[in-house]
Design a protein around this nucleic acid. Structure first.
Lengths: 146, 146
DNA sequence: TATTGTTATACTCTATAACTATA
DNA sequence: TATAGTTATAGAGTATAACAATA
């Protein structure tokens, strides 16, 4: 029952809630989590090579081929020729892909409001500060495992 | 930049850290996430029928067959006859399975300490209370999607 | 030579539907 | 009839290794 374990358990319960929300979104959009992540990355980072996507998602290049295949089939992205490197392709969101990214952003913000909107400014500030202090103790999370 | 979105993003970053920690554990133990979850459930709830495990993990009964097959092959569980229902089996941890569960618990507690041990009692208390208030707004998370 | 992406192959997780053995 | 678990089948995500085209 140390309070630290209690805090971790509650954080995990919360992220489970977030996961459920994402699942609901995916069901209505006929989408899967890895494809949503790729589309999110594309929306945040703009058209990218498959190599860059493989790095960003921390997944093998072969895997990106499959995910992009699926997103091409569903009409969310296209493979465009890279302007200077003829080996590479630029994975580019279609209008439908961009619309889905916008919907994701909206859903994300709405969930955040639903989860934390009830906390007054001071409590929310203290909450975020505590998270910052915790995250600061782990240098470059994504590189840590490399 | 609303603070609510900021809070959600940081919670997700934190749960990503936790996920990385679990992955490291799984690599060293030659284990997968679904099997770890099953083993955790078994450790927490004691020997269980596959039907109960399917409910607890929110997964199809067929899927449990596969996960248990894998855990039997790796020597972490056995299928024991149910004392009163000859249709059912009691999935039961072996010594190795129980040891792995203990290691999981230990790793979980150590991670919690590493993440939150630096916060003083008052800040940690406020953090947990904020999480409680947030979680209380979502009645029975697991049933919500049903 | 090194890099980008694909084909070939394989394994795990996941689901539904049909089936067997029991309740 | 209903329930517990398995076989059959299918699809998505994941990986490594070998290969083609290009740098």
């Amino acid at each position: 029952m140390p309070a630290a374990t209690d805090a971790l358990d509650k954080v995990l319960a919360l992220s489970l809630l977030v996961g459920r929300d994402l699942e609901r979104f995916e069901r209505t959009e006929r989408m899967t989590t890895p494809r949503v992540h790729l589309l999110w990355q594309l929306g945040a980072g703009g058209p990218s090579t498959q190599r860059d996507l493989a790095h960003a998602l921390d997944v093998s290049p072969r895997n990106i081929t499959g995910l992009v295949d699926g997103l091409v089939a569903s009409g969310h992205v296209t493979r465009e020729p890279h302007p200077t490197d003829r080996r590479a392709t630029l994975v580019t969101p279609t209008a439908a892909g961009a619309a889905l990214f916008a919907a994701l952003q909206h859903s994300h913000a709405a969930l955040a409001e639903r989860l934390f909107g009830h906390l007054d400014e001071q409590r929310l500030g203290a909450f975020v500060t505590a998270l910052d202090d915790t995250l600061d103790r782990f240098p470059t999370p994504l590189e840590q495992s490399a």
